[in-house]
Design a protein around this nucleic acid. Sequence first.
DNA 1: TGTCCTTTAAA
DNA 2: TTAAAGGAC
Length: 442
Amino acid sequence: MWFRRDLRLADNPALLAALADGPVLPLFVLDPALWRPAGPTRRSYLAASLRSLDASLPRGLTLLDGDPVRRVVDAARAIGAGRVHWAADYAPYGHRRDEAVAQALGEAGIEVVRTGSPYAVAPGRVRQPSGQPFRVYSPFQRAWRAHGWRAPVAAPSGGEWLRLEEDTVAVPDAPVPDGLSVPEAGEDAARRRWAAYLERLDSYAARRNDPGADATSHLSPHLRWGEVHPRTLLADLEERTSRGAAAFRRELAWREFYADVLFRHPESAREHLRPEFSRMRYDEPGERLAAWEEGRTGFPIVDAGMRQLRATGWMHNRLRMVVASFLVKDLHVTWQHGARHFMRWLADGDLASNAHGWQWTAGTGTDPAPYFRVFNPTGQGRKFDAAGRYVRRWVEELSDPTLVPDPHEPDQDTRDLVGYPAPIVDHAFERREALDRWQAAR
DNA sequence: TGTCCTTTAAA
DNA sequence: TTAAAGGAC
């Protein structure tokens, strides 16, 4: 018996059964494609998550580095495993890679048991009556709720674990670099965070779009790395009737919707879901992309979001939309460049949610915002960060209210005084340009 | 989970 | 002069 440990201990009946059967080899494939491009924040979080997982196992975690297709098959052979439990509907590296591994195992004569999902409802299960997948969020959300899900299961106890001594790598040490901070990782941290957040949940609906209020749960990294299961959250939400609880459940539904879309369209992790957008003219990324990545565009709300990302490995959801809109529609850079930057730095970066969040903003994806919905970065700042709390916190140059009375649109003298850059583009002009290019491509 | 411009109507 | 409402993109 051998188990690919993409899923953590919680809420995995197949893993519990395997434990009762014993012996089990817990394995986490540390795919270089996942690890090496990671920036310091993502890398630190993942390392801490792995260490936490390692500490929770009776005999330790096995990591494999290198080509996952070859390594997984080699590891299964090394312990003489005739059967492998495979979380095949979880695609941390993309479904193509997962399919390649599953196929290689099959060719090696090893039985593959598909099991487990980090989603309440496994991708592919919620369908229209015709059998077709949903392409629009709202009807998906209704069908998803109607479909339902089973209750979370209790944490396991007992069982026997094996450790593969050869061909393994140590759990990596990736300390958080000076000046940066990342969320605390691990299942215990996830449980504590959720318990604390339940006290504030009822105000979620009213405050979730105010980035300065920091009123969101910050559970996304825990969900991403399997440290808490959405069924656990949904079971607790079911007992509550507040608007906040309902709004939080709808956000979980977005995560499941995008997982379903990626499952149905594996290529959409990197390509436009709507192929007609291949006719759109985009600019080659250059200095403007670098300015966006480093938070020096001269648009305070954009720079605040980009700096929060690099400092903490996390960005408020409202800001993810604002900075994405800015990159695609003000700088005319394809969403793939932005998605790649997010995946390098986000501790919670998830292939499905990231790619389709970007495609939504870019207008190339499922249930897209019409392309003419262009965020005005200054207007978004004034509307959602009215007091300027968020901008002042993350853009140090603008932090002093006596020097900078209007942090969302400081005048040129103020910018010179505090050393904050002038806007790299004229938003009104670039908005027009984006709409013109869209018209030309239609 | 958009923005902008025009129209209309209350002042 | 301002704000609300509505249509276009």
